[in-house]
């Protein structure tokens, strides 16, 4: 170390030349003592990252409140609220609305479903019947009836959700949210 211009070296007792080991030991012990609570606390803080993903029960498919027959082939998309039990830390909220989907029947036994969250920044898109497209009121993202984006604002098309027709007329859907802003569909939670 170059000599600082402050005259620090004038220790009243003359700085004793202590063994190198004492220095290392003192510093090491201090480090260990401080690290234990800090690292324990950090592990605690990182809890949300370590939590198992919410698998839900069964295969993750939910029965929709509308039957296949109630949907007109190539008719207007219908907005359906997704009602699920929601676990929030220590509470379980039974039957809470957690999101919404647009359902549209495109064939005798085919239903297309879009998550109503805009892939741009997560606002809810509206269906405009007069223009036959989905429109996001936040930043004017526009999507066609098939969910394909019609301007350059959203990073990707509307998020398609898996649908199954079961027991000859029940509509079942795998509800998922996806990260906004990315060109790829990345599931959340």
């Amino acid at each position: 170390m170059s000599q600082p211009h402050l005259e620090l070296q004038e220790n009243p007792s003359g700085e004793p030349r202590r063994g190198f080991m004492t220095n290392i030991l003192a510093a090491g012990i201090g480090l260990v003592a401080g690290a234990v609570p800090a690292l324990t606390g950090l592990a605690f803080f990182l809890d949300p990252l370590m939590r198992k993903k919410n698998g839900g029960s069964g295969d993750g498919f939910l029965k929709m409140p509308v039957a296949l027959d109630a949907l007109e082939i190539n008719g207007e998309p219908q907005l359906v609220k997704i009602i699920m039990d929601k676990v929030d830390a220590w509470n379980t909220y039974l039957k809470q609305p957690v999101g919404a989907v647009y359902l549209r029947r495109t064939d005798q036994d085919k239903v297309v479903a879009f998550n109503s969250r805009c892939p741009h920044l997560g606002c809810a898109v509206d269906y405009k019947p007069s223009q036959e497209h989905y429109f996001c009121p936040c930043h004017t993202s526009t999507f066609g009836l098939d969910g394909v984006k019609q301007n350059e604002i959203p990073p990707r098309d509307l998020d398609n959700l898996e649908v199954q027709i079961r027991n000859g007329g029940e509509v079942w859907l795998k509800f998922q949210n996806f990260r906004a802003t990315t060109p790829e569909k990345i599931p959340v939670g």
């Binding site: 007792s13 700085e15 004793p16 004492t22 220095n23 030991l25 003192a26 012990i29 201090g30």
Partner: peptide, 14 residues
């Protein structure tokens, strides 16, 4: 003999 806080007393404290 006199000592300084670092490292002698720090070691004991630690």
């Amino acid at each position: 003999p006199a000592a300084t806080f670092w490292p002698d007393q720090v070691l004991k404290d630690g």
